[in-house]
């Protein structure tokens, strides 16, 4: 095992430990920013696990997230189940769904894969709405719990930590190796005897599992679940964008993408309450031009320069 890999893991452990104290260190407002950031860190990191090495851009995050949130809402509101039971069921359903999608998309590549996942997410949202309308009926999906932001924050932190650890192991395993070769050249990968299908499906299933889990954890925070908000395609895009801003080539890319991005987002929302969408758009453009390879690219460039200087 390379020492660099180990030190990365130690760093991650320290960060997780420090991050766990956030609820005692800041007020409720900063904690709620922390929750948002942690949600995107967990989602983007699990997205990067699959899409980073393979270069397959998935826009299905919203579908899995939605399944998680929706199942918690429906289970608690219409069937009086406990949050914990639904939080266990939700990621399993998300994983099964992701596995099916994984198998279905094996032949697709490039932009066809991207838009396929998007279309699939939209189909799932429509089917869920239709089933609820015709068979379940509803008086609104309420998720009323006594959780507060710090509980949700810790749960998300735990998920993010697990995702990171898993990603770290995978990138050092046979599967991780296989994924990188797929990202390089899929035909080559097949020729050298790598079972590209299994590797892809396993990883995609993992991202589905975690996205649904995050959706389930966020549901009590939202308190009231509307299919059209919980299955938002915008979430899928934002997860991709935060990962890309950070840099999808590294597992820690999302971390350095999400945190500054969330703070920037907040700053814009406060400074320009009437035109925050417009100014966010301007920020996006500036970032794209100023950071060609995301935050990771910039950080590694600085590192290289420092080493050269030293």
């Amino acid at each position: 095992m390379k020492p660099a890999g180990m030190s990365e893991l130690v760093w991650a452990a320290v960060l997780v430990f420090v991050a766990a104290f956030l609820p005692w260190m800041v007020n409720g407002y900063w904690l709620s920013i922390g929750v948002t950031a942690m949600m995107y860190i967990a989602l983007s990191t699990s997205w990067v696990m699959f899409s980073g090495p393979t270069h397959y851009i998935s826009l299905a995050t919203g579908a899995f997230f939605g399944v998680g949130g929706y199942l918690v809402g429906a289970g608690m509101s219409d069937y009086q189940q406990s949050f914990w039971l639904m939080a266990v069921i939700a990621p399993i359903v998300g994983a099964i769904l992701a596995a099916l999608i994984g198998f279905a998309t094996l032949r697709l590549s490039g932009v066809y894969f991207v838009i396929f996942t998007l279309g699939l997410a939209e189909m799932i949202r429509n089917v869920v709405s239709w089933v609820q309308n015709n068979f379940l009926g509803s008086r609104g999906l309420y998720v009323l719990t006594d959780f507060r932001d710090q509980h949700i924050y810790w749960m998300l932190l735990a998920v993010a930590a697990v995702v990171y650890l898993l990603g770290w192991f995978i990138s050092r395993s046979r599967i991780g190796f296989a994924l990188r070769i797929i990202g390089g050249d899929e035909t080559v990968a097949r020729h050298v005897g790598i079972n590209t299908a299994t590797a892809k499906v396993i990883l995609f299933t993992t991202t589905g599992f975690f996205a649904a889990l995050v959706g389930a954890i966020i549901a009590p925070r939202w308190s009231y679940i509307e299919p059209n908000q919980v299955f938002s395609p915008q979430l899928s895009f934002l997860v991709v964008i935060m990962a890309l801003l950070g840099g999808a080539g590294r597992l820690w890319g999302p971390l350095v993408g999400v945190i500054p991005f969330t703070i920037l987002w907040e700053w814009v929302a406060i400074q320009f309450p009437n035109q925050s969408t417009l100014f966010l758009g301007l920020c996006f453009l500036l970032i794209v031009y100023a950071l060609p390879h995301g935050m990771v690219g910039r950080i590694e460039e600085l590192r290289a320069r420092m080493r050269r200087g030293a």
């Binding site: 991709v240 890309l244 758009g281």
Partner: peptide, 10 residues
């Protein structure tokens, strides 16, 4: 994707 997403917001 990044740039045009920004434009859509603008």
């Amino acid at each position: 994707i990044l740039a045009t997403f920004g434009m859509s917001f603008i």
